[in-house]
Simulated assay, not measured.
Amino acid sequence: MTVVIAATELRKEFTVRVRSGRLRREKRVVAAVDGVDLRVERGEMLGYIGPNGAGKSTTLKMLTGVLMPSGGEARVCGYVPVAQRTRLARRIGVVFGQRSQLWWDLPLRESFDLLGHIYRVPAAEHAARLRRCRGLLDLDEFMDTPVRQLSLGQRMRGELTAALLHGPEVLFLDEPTIGLDVVSKQAVRSFLTDLGAGGDVTLVLTTHDLADIERLCRRLVVIDHGRVVHDGTIEELHARYGSRRRVVAELDEPVGTPPEGAVVEADGRRLVFTVDGPAAPVIARLAGLPALRDLTIVEPDIEEVVTRLYLSRDAP
């Protein structure tokens, strides 16, 4: 596999002023990113997550050439991001949820045409990529609508298309579904799933919507206080921080004494058990209940696991 993103001891420090006494302020250096090592191979779908202020967006801005690192090294598609920003721009696509690369007063179609000229994309390639995006993202109904009149969901679909028209090798996505309704989120997720399945584009996704990560990304990097605290699969994260499945039993009538196990909820005809290990022993005990009507295993969501990770790091 080819490594398309390589970062070693990547750092970014900012100088801030903090109050010192009633009238004085003093300068303080804050490390937003503090020694991040990262390697991403071609075709990977990487989730890069963390709490507010963890350094996610700062990392992406350094990798895309927007910010100069304070220390360390980074290469994306073989280029040093800031020093070779123009060359790198032709090899990457960027979507920031709160910023637009479309022309506000132009119809969406004309924004796409302008981007094709800016990136000097051959007409046949531009038409083919636009045709694919129009089909997968259902753009046709608003192609001639000015960008300022689009809904947030429509604009985000336009932003994704704009980022892909020049055929990037890497697509950086910073909160691509922020503020979207359920239908628009589903459309964006389905499109990114199809895009990633082709293996031609490497996706790096930062988001607070952990459903995006669960749906799209096999590998997960968790950053906290500027440092990587987990780099592996979602399954490994669950295993490392004690994910607990729930076994839910629906009963036809209440039982006097529930079967042995960690009961977290006993509400008349509904019993909920937490399971740290295999669920089979609990299921076997419940299956013997004459009043059992239905049995469901609820897998833990990633938000619960990440919360445990942060709590374990904050504990003394």
Rank of each mutant, 00 (worst) to 15 (best):
S100N: 08
P107S: 10
V76W: 01
R75V: 08
R87I: 00
V66G: 00
W104V: 09
R91Y: 05
P69N: 13
R75L: 02
A89R: 11
M62Y: 10
T86K: 13
T59D: 02
L88S: 00
Y79W: 15
C77S: 12
G65D: 07
V94L: 14
V76G: 02
Q101G: 06
S100R: 14
G97H: 10
T59G: 00
R85D: 10
T58E: 05
L63F: 11
R87K: 13
P107E: 05
L102F: 13
D105F: 05
L106I: 04
L106C: 07
P107K: 12
V82Y: 06
V95F: 01
Q98V: 11
G78F: 12
V95C: 02
K61N: 12
G71A: 14
K61Q: 14
Q101K: 11
V66C: 06
G71Y: 12
W103I: 07
F96M: 11
T58I: 06
G72D: 07
L88Y: 00
D105Y: 05
G93V: 07
G93H: 09
R87A: 04
V82E: 08
G78K: 11
P81M: 03
P107A: 09
V95K: 00
R85H: 12
T86S: 01
W103E: 13
R75D: 04
L67D: 07
G97D: 09
T58P: 13
I92K: 02
Q101A: 07
G72C: 07
R75P: 08
C77G: 14
P69I: 12
R85L: 01
F96I: 13
G65A: 13
P81N: 09
V66Y: 14
V66L: 14
L67Y: 15
G65E: 03
R90E: 07
V76H: 02
Q84Y: 08
G78C: 12
A89H: 04
L106T: 05
R75T: 15
A89M: 12
M62S: 05
T64P: 10
G97A: 01
R91G: 01
A89Y: 03
V66A: 14
F96W: 12
G72L: 11
R90C: 07
P81I: 05
V94S: 01
P81F: 08
I92E: 05
G72I: 07
L102C: 12
L60H: 05
L88K: 01
M68L: 11
Q101M: 10
L106V: 09
T59Y: 06
W103P: 09
V66I: 15
V82R: 12
Y79Q: 06
A83N: 06
L63S: 04
V82W: 03
G65T: 11
F96H: 02
M62I: 07
R91K: 15
Q98L: 06
S57L: 06
M68P: 03
G93I: 04
S100I: 11
G65P: 02
L102Y: 10
W103M: 06
V95Q: 02
Q101L: 14
R85Y: 02
S57A: 00
Q84K: 09
K56T: 01
L102T: 08
R85W: 00
C77A: 15
K61L: 00
R75A: 13
P107Q: 14
E73K: 15
E73R: 15
M62L: 14
W103L: 13
T59W: 06
Y79H: 15
S57V: 10
R91P: 02
Q98R: 07
L102G: 09
M68Q: 14
